[in-house]
Computed example of a mutant assay.
Amino acid sequence: MVIDPGHNPGNFRHTAEINRQVDIGTNRKECDTTGTSTNGGYTEAKFTLDVARRMRELLEAQGATVKLTQDGDRPFGPCIDERARIGNEAKADAVVSLHADGSGTGNRGFHVILPGAVKAGAADTRAIVGPSRELGERIAGNFVRVTGSAPSNYVGGGTGLVTRKDLGGLNLSTVPKVFIECGNMRDSKDAAQLTSGAWRQKAARGISDGIVSFLRG
């Protein structure tokens, strides 16, 4: 399976490269973004990499073969189209893209983003919509159970699930894939969790348990 830690700590130093437009099927979008950060300066890119490494350890202990789209081992990126390609070329049974949101204060909780049905240009998600929803539902259920975090109070109508057709990482995927926004970095209560190593370990376990449950059917 493939874990995709959103953004890259080096993106801040490579703005020209990450602003380059890439084709996501439905339209063109910048290669990548810097991501957000807590008010205290803890970046989303550091958060996603930490959770990805914790997940890799947990999943490998269960016998899974795990690949990361980046492991802090490249100066920036990869671009969103390459992130999708890595999962596709690995013929991954599941791909999870890790993120944390940068929404307004008072907006709290996690949400899982599912691919909508898209057929445009290089994008055709129709075959992965069903299995991706199943993956997303299992991750959401396990995330609540392990972290005690509530589904988002600002998107998804309390379900913790949101469908989108504007994300290149989902549009270009040919294997089951979801994004998870683990919390809102701009809310002080969520930020206190996101900056805690103990909580990140729970987040890693919740997401990993959801993946394992999906893979076992």
Score class of each variant (00 low, 15 high):
77 G>D: 07
139 I>P: 05
66 V>I: 15
86 I>P: 11
106 G>N: 12
6 G>S: 07
70 Q>C: 02
186 R>S: 14
57 E>I: 12
63 G>K: 12
167 L>F: 14
7 H>S: 08
98 L>W: 06
145 R>I: 00
67 K>Y: 13
33 T>G: 15
126 R>P: 00
7 H>E: 08
2 V>Y: 06
51 V>W: 02
200 R>T: 02
83 R>P: 11
38 T>N: 12
41 G>M: 12
203 A>H: 01
165 K>P: 00
194 L>C: 09
217 G>A: 07
68 L>K: 10
30 E>W: 03
64 A>M: 13
26 T>S: 13
22 V>D: 03
53 R>T: 10
98 L>S: 04
117 A>W: 01
25 G>F: 05
62 Q>D: 15
85 R>L: 14
148 G>W: 04
184 N>H: 06
40 G>K: 13
106 G>L: 11
96 V>S: 06
27 N>P: 00
75 P>D: 12
134 E>M: 07
31 C>S: 13
38 T>F: 06
38 T>K: 09
109 G>A: 07
184 N>Q: 06
136 G>Q: 05
103 S>Y: 07
201 Q>H: 07
101 D>P: 09
49 L>I: 12
3 I>E: 08
115 P>Q: 09
100 A>M: 13
19 N>H: 04
23 D>K: 03
101 D>T: 03
125 T>I: 11
46 K>N: 13
7 H>L: 10
216 R>V: 08
200 R>N: 14
198 A>K: 08
42 Y>H: 06
137 E>M: 06
196 S>V: 02
164 R>Y: 00
62 Q>F: 03
177 K>N: 13
11 N>T: 07
90 A>I: 00
84 A>K: 12
42 Y>S: 04
146 V>R: 14
48 T>Y: 05
178 V>P: 12
92 A>C: 11
24 I>S: 03
100 A>L: 01
4 D>A: 09
106 G>V: 10
115 P>C: 09
90 A>E: 14
216 R>M: 07
24 I>W: 02
205 R>S: 11
200 R>C: 11
159 T>I: 04
185 M>T: 02
28 R>N: 11
32 D>P: 06
90 A>R: 08
43 T>K: 14
108 R>P: 00
142 N>H: 11
22 V>C: 07
173 S>T: 11
123 A>E: 05
114 L>F: 02
35 G>P: 01
133 R>L: 10
206 G>D: 04
35 G>D: 08
69 T>R: 10
65 T>N: 14
29 K>L: 08
26 T>L: 11
68 L>P: 10
34 T>E: 12
7 H>I: 09
41 G>K: 11
124 D>R: 13
157 G>T: 01
17 E>M: 00
60 E>D: 07
22 V>Q: 10
167 L>A: 01
128 I>S: 06
121 G>H: 05
48 T>A: 10
130 G>V: 11
32 D>E: 15
25 G>A: 08
90 A>C: 01
171 N>G: 08
152 S>A: 14
34 T>R: 12
101 D>C: 04
183 G>I: 01
88 N>H: 09
79 C>E: 07
47 F>M: 11
123 A>W: 04
